[in-house]
Nucleic acid binder design. Structure first.
Lengths: 260, 260
DNA sequence: GTAATAGTGTCTATTAGACATTATCCC
DNA sequence: GGGATAATGTCTAATAGACACTATTAC
């Protein structure tokens, strides 16, 4: 047996008994939904997919796509289903649970606990809304969250702005500690494209030379394809194309900061 | 108006309408619970508080403390209430939501979505179980999760072992990017105690000299009290006592890894 | 005295980051 | 040619990490 400390026992309280011996009918009604923060990069900016539905209470408001969890599906499956219904696309990286939101009154209809997910799509120009939304659009995250200094042009339903903010913060952290960035780019990409992911998500400018040295220094991460892409109308030297070693992306150890 | 891409509209599907126009009575019954992973350090080891209740389906099994979310409380409030009922103690750092667990069948009674929280207690020797548990004990995390190489001595209810594993991983990440470690120690502490937090959570040994240089190098983090503590029976030079600057701990920017 | 721990100093290899230089395209 | 971007090379300051050394206690 392992070593552990015994803590003094105590009698169970009556209030606790009540809640443990519940019957489903006694339990106050709660609904559980899954909302998905679908992120992609377009025009060198991080964008989120918002939908506008006709039904109240969403009437005229922009909101995150989402819906109720069905009895026979896991939370992850519900999030994948919502993603498919909204975009018809596969995520470029495994969807990731963000956190749950459940303040009383956040949904005016009833008590709703929302489990939020983050999904990343490869940069696509022809994104097409699925069957689940009356209207959908990609909105720049920086302006939505007021990071540009100007007042946000969109007012989101419920606490969805907070959810988007949390999702972006999670994404920024993921780019620090994992090789997650390749989820935003296509199968073959230039280092400038990959650098653009970090610049869009972090809102910074990175030195191309140092960026190149750093990412190419990761063992078995980037595989040169041997081919090049012609430069844009601005000119410039043709850029080399790379692929990622997917197994390295998935199993690369999280970068641990050192402390002495 | 900001720049954004319009995505093609599409007709809403019948299935979607069904779920949006729900009435509470139509919605499949779901219960939402909050479980709390209460962590502390004892004997230089990270430990988690487990409880054993008499009622089925917990009968004879060790589990995380937790309970149902009440209609009038937020998820955070529910977690704080559970913590108070179990330990009677205040958390040493703000409780933090971990993630939610909702696989069908994870609780044999009905569909249960559990929102898990992590709470950190200062290292205490006289922890006392509250009114909400028939029996409670602190169990070493490393042996519970099989990190010692030996088979785990406890079998946890439901998916609670997975929850503990996720909580420990979150904690390890928090110690990397924040000045969170002081939540585990008392108001005044030695650098050896603080170092012991990292060593217990990360399962590593740190160089005392380098550790000292690094943490004292953080501006306005540690405040020397001027007093010392006598060494233990092993002897040694008396250690200086420090306090933390709480505002620095709370508002210190997350350490961002650089990338070119 | 020896053993043990706290605290200080020093050296080295690695790294971040700035920036110059060369290569190859568009116009 | 000039302008732009990609790719390579070089230098410096900061840091991680190893480790020697001194200080102060218990025994």
């Amino acid at each position: 047996m392992i070593e552990e400390s015994e803590v003094e026992e105590d009698e169970a309280s009556a209030a606790t008994e009540d809640l443990l011996d519940y019957e489903p009918a006694d339990y106050p009604p709660v609904a559980v939904t899954v909302d998905v923060v679908i992120l992609t990069i377009e025009d060198k900016a991080l964008k989120v997919l918002l939908v506008r539905r006709a039904q109240p209470p969403f009437e005229g408001m922009w909101a995150l796509p989402g819906g109720f969890v069905r009895p026979d599906e896991t939370l992850d499956e519900a999030a994948l289903r919502e993603l498919g219904e909204e975009t018809g696309l596969e995520p470029a990286a495994p969807i990731e649970q963000l956190r749950s939101y459940g303040d009383p009154g956040r949904d005016p209809r009833m008590r709703v606990i929302t489990v939020a997910y983050v999904a990343v799509l490869k940069s696509v120009s022809g994104l097409r809304a699925g069957s689940d939304a009356a209207e959908a659009r990609l909105v720049e995250v920086a302006s939505l969250l007021g990071e540009t200094g100007e007042p946000p042009a969109f007012q989101l339903a419920f606490d969805h702005e907070e959810i988007v903010a949390d999702a972006v913060e999670l994404l920024r952290a993921r780019l620090e500690s994992t090789l997650f960035a390749s989820a935003f780019v296509g199968a073959e990409f230039t280092l400038a494209e990959l650098r653009g992911v970090y610049e869009a998500v972090w809102g910074v400018e990175l030195d191309p030379a140092n960026f190149r040295r750093k990412v190419l220094g990761v063992q078995n991460y980037l595989i040169p394809t041997g081919s090049r892409v012609p430069p844009g109308p601005e000119g410039g030297r043709p850029a080399e194309l790379y692929r990622v070693n997917q197994s390295v992306v998935e199993f690369a150890p999280v970068i641990r900061r050192t402390l002495a």
